[in-house]
Structure formats: structure tokens, C-alpha cells
Amino acid sequence: MKKVTLHLLLIALIGTGAAWVNKSPNTGKGKFVAHRYSYKSKSLDGTKYYWTYDITSLGWMEGTNYDCLTPNSATCTFAADPSDNMVDANGNYFLLTDILSTSFESGTFTLD
């Protein structure tokens, strides 16, 4: 009896190689590459903030594709840890602050 099935071993090596090629960059605390997000939204009940459109992933360059007008304004881009990026039923958003986590938020969000 064969101790290991050879064709499966080959497939395991392919799986390992694919994992290596497609590995995500490590984004540990203090080591993450900060991404910029285009604007901030607030849930209607005021318990959560969301940051939408990861423009770093879209390849936008500051000064070429966008400008940060004034800090803390709704039109200003900002940096954040991409590992906190989340996906909801409508697309991507970025959750930075859980003000009071009560229930799943969905639907329309007001712009801050």
C-alpha cells in the first residue's frame, strides 16, 4: 500500500504554491500600510462611523487623483488600517469606531 497518494501530494504542492503567490501582505499592528478612504459616513442612529471607497486600492495618487482640502472635513481623505476594512451587502466600508455596538446597521447613512 502506498503511504502517500502521489497525485494528491502534487496537488498539495500546487495549493501551497498558490497560497504563497497569493498571500496577503502582513498588516500587523504598527506595520500596516495605511490606506486612504474617500469620505466618512455616520449611521442614522449615530452609533457607528463608516469610511467608504478605499482609494489606495483603486490606485489613486495624492496630488494627481485627489487632494486633501482641509483636515477633518467631509471632503478630506485620510489614512487608516486596511485590515479593518469590511464588506456589507452594498459594498465596502471601513469601520473605525464602534461607538455603541447594538445591532447590524444597514440602509442609508448620512454624510458627516
Binding site: 496537488i11 498539495a12 498558490a18 504563497w20 496577503s24 502582513n26 485590515s83 479593518d84
Partner: peptide, 29 residues
């Protein structure tokens, strides 16, 4: 089917090992 499962589990298992910090960050979410 076993071949497909070997491919799936080596890929998903090693994806986690090769980018462990990133995977832990995802798990935190």
C-alpha cells in the same frame, strides 16, 4: 473530490500561515 479538497485546504491553510498577522487581523474583525 479528494484532490479538490486537498487543493482547497492546502491553499486556505497555507494562506493563513504565510500571512499570519494579516490573517489574525481578519479574524479580529
Amino acid at each position: 473530490i479528494p484532490a479538490l479538497l486537498v487543493l482547497l485546504f492546502t491553499y486556505t491553510g497555507f494562506s493563513k500561515v504565510f500571512a499570519f498577522e494579516s490573517y489574525q487581523g481578519t479574524l479580529m474583525n
